[in-house]
Design a protein around this nucleic acid. Sequence first.
DNA 1: AGAGTTAGTAGACGCTTGTTTACTTGTCAA
DNA 2: TTGACAAGTAAACAAGCGTCTACTAACTCT
Lengths: 182, 182
Amino acid sequence: MTRDREATSRRILEAARDLFAADGYDQVTMRMIAAEAGANVALVNRYFGTKAALFAEALATGSTIESVIAGDPAGLAGRLAHRLAVRLQSGATEPVTRMVDRAGTSPEIQAILHTHVEATVVKRIAAQLDGPHPEQRALLAATMILGTGSVRRLFGPGVIEAVDAEEVEARLRAMFEICLRP
Amino acid sequence: MTRDREATSRRILEAARDLFAADGYDQVTMRMIAAEAGANVALVNRYFGTKAALFAEALATGSTIESVIAGDPAGLAGRLAHRLAVRLQSGATEPVTRMVDRAGTSPEIQAILHTHVEATVVKRIAAQLDGPHPEQRALLAATMILGTGSVRRLFGPGVIEAVDAEEVEARLRAMFEICLRP
DNA sequence: AGAGTTAGTAGACGCTTGTTTACTTGTCAA
DNA sequence: TTGACAAGTAAACAAGCGTCTACTAACTCT
């Protein structure tokens, strides 16, 4: 056994991220995370404190949604629509996105989630918008983003097995344009 | 103590519905439900079998979303938009709707939720639609409906303290019209 | 080479959970 | 009035949870 704190804690963090994404916060135990990471349970608590704190750190692992939002504001609706269309039609989704969808309902987790979504989605979208009350419109966009996660979680990936994939995406783009425009 | 099985089991069901709606499936214990209903814990299992079965029955208590969907198909987008606008702006929401928002992530609960949403929302909206692939468009509407629940859960009721309530509702209506139209 | 620091381990602690069993008590028919 | 059935109760069960403490073993530095 090679002793490497950094590598071990990184393995734990990745295991936590993947398991939380796959099964949801409540369904994943500290022992499952430790086993997946090939580490001892006590180390998980030692390195990350509590389960909720570990969840918060795993959530901060980084998501590509941020790079989707950044960029030319004119194409924002189109980029968000594309991402959601992919999410509704294919099986692959990045871990952090699924963590958000499948997070639990305990107050502590809610608060962590709230902070995360507000900072990485709502604020960033709002920053791209012109006109009055940008946050209000960004929240409507968040409604669609989070809703896609719920639908995917309930109905399974590939729920919209696109008869016409481009048509679904076009519809989503039009919806985003309406909720984002001044 | 008056002994009345029907009344007791109804009190249990109502207590379960209200608690599940308020705190989410995982946060609510059988003992909490029994206490709220003024009944013994063993009775909850006796009358409803398991916690998940009780959840399923409480979910079937009935929701006004069904009557919102029913009615003139031409005004469907407007009625859905109004309901969501109210949900984003006020504190009051009916129990069953919140149960859906705050349900847990265990496979068993997911399955119950999937059945419920599909039967009471997606199928009913799809039945109102003309043109090809009505279920596909109904799913997009469900995305907005479920997304509203997520936003409300994360950001709290009254998140969109409408500077212009009617403007938000108009925006939602336009979005629904796009996702529902053939 | 030896001491000190620190990664890693084993195991238990205390608590909570859903569920079940054995029992008591009220109610109603005969 | 009595006996049987059903409603209600108390207590325990068995399992699982997150977390912590006491210990072992590997690495580093002088």
